[in-house]
Design a binder for these strands. Structure first.
Lengths: 140, 140
DNA sequence: TGTCTAATGAGAATAATTCTCTTTTAATAA
DNA sequence: TTATTAAAAGAGAATTATTCTCATTAGACA
């Protein structure tokens, strides 16, 4: 994702294009490891040393609200963010905090078909995400 | 889950049986809504007004470590707990904090078969949980 | 280029959780 | 049944992630 692309996405959503917003979105894309706010702050401060903590949190909230990034559910009381917006699943390492994306359209279709037949009573499905917990065999 | 049963589970895991531990496990079972630590504390203090906040957190951690309860992943920076230990999935309301259990063995088998055939490279699956996001049609 | 509103910066405030340390208590053995 | 001991609980302070407040700055648009 290039800066021009980020800029367009912000404009599309009616968000002002600011250097902070660009830097934060860029950071999440570049880090590409479902970073925490702290990870993002550390990364950005290298080039942008004066960005305020609160700004990062506010920008992250704004980006989530506007569908440019997503929050990632974890078992820690620390939020993580994901810039990959296509429907995808997550591989959670049971021994560390590593989280990887898992894209699988065949699986998505399988699930879609399954829940077309088998309805959940009193519930309208909007999205399905798999948390696949396990161990990475090779390390990164 | 009765007190005797809770007692046995604690003994099984080599945990001392204390009134606090029993009360906390009972609370999670009775509340049955994936409560937060705060929910649990409020509930317990009705009958057990002197229990310390730190005790609740420590007991919750001990119960999670020993596999008697599970943490539930959410997008809020607040932890929720679940006393249902059989493999099951969760229905997340997209409009509120409501989370319900979803048990479906047919689905589990489907997924198991699917991932037997289709391996994920460099990853050994231990557990799969679905986060099914949507809307509850009737309210509780 | 000026105006206006929204965004940012800085630091204080808050909320959930963890830590520290003293006291109490459950488990076990005598 | 009582004594012993290690683990657990209690109390409140400390920590950490996140949010709030408000003065200042800067995009967007006329």
């Amino acid at each position: 994702m290039k800066v021009g692309e980020i800029r367009n996405k912000l404009i599309e959503k009616g968000l002002k294009v600011t250097p902070q917003r660009i830097a934060i979105l860029e950071a999440i894309v570049k880090l590409n490891n479902h970073p925490t706010a702290e990870n993002i702050i550390d990364y950005i401060r290298k080039n942008h040393p004066n960005i305020a903590t609160a700004t990062v949190y506010k920008v992250l909230d704004a980006l989530v609200e506007n569908g440019l990034i997503k929050k990632v559910k974890t078992e820690k009381d620390i939020m993580r963010y994901d810039a990959v917006m296509e429907s995808h699943h997550h591989l959670y390492c049971s021994e560390s905090d590593r989280i990887e994306d898992y894209k699988d359209n065949e699986l998505n279709e399988l699930l879609e078909k399954y829940f077309e037949k088998k309805k959940i009573p009193d519930f309208k499905i909007e999205d399905i995400k798999l948390q696949i917990i396990g161990k990475f065999i090779k390390n990164k």
